[in-house]
């Protein structure tokens, strides 16, 4: 007599095998890219203040904007869009993969 399998407990940090594990993997990857570029860059600007690297960050210009201002004001919103596109393409792909295994419903 085999004992029934222990029910799965929903937990972001311990995803269920299959679609959910793939989904959580891309979620964590995107969150990493989101956090490092948003907050990591500010730490970098802050830590480099007054040093040679810091003046490089604020003196170099792109579209006549100082590099740090351009990065925060213009690149980051674009980066968020890129992250969302990557996420959607990846999730489309794993959804297709897992629904093909099941019933080809793609939804």
């Amino acid at each position: 007599m085999s004992r029934p399998e222990k029910p799965y407990k929903v937990n972001l940090l311990r995803p269920k095998e299959g679609h959910m594990r793939d989904e959580v993997r891309i979620i964590l990857a995107i969150l990493f890219g989101w956090g490092v570029c948003t907050f990591g860059f500010q730490f970098l600007v802050y830590a480099c203040r007054g040093t040679g690297a810091g003046s490089l960050l604020t003196r170099l210009t792109l579209f006549n904007l100082p590099l740090h201002f351009w990065f925060t004001g213009q690149f980051l919103p674009l980066w968020f869009i890129v992250l969302c596109v990557i996420f959607n393409i990846y999730v489309d792909r794993i959804t297709e993969y897992h629904s093909r295994r099941r019933d080809r419903s793609y939804e």
Binding site: F69, F80, L83, C84
Partner: peptide, 23 residues
């Protein structure tokens, strides 16, 4: 520059919303 925190906050929030909650 401090004001740019609003630009980033009000766009970056959608990343959180999309990956963690939307579907």
């Amino acid at each position: 520059y401090q004001g740019l925190a609003y630009v980033i906050g009000w766009t970056g929030g959608y990343v959180l919303l999309l990956v963690l909650l939307a579907s």
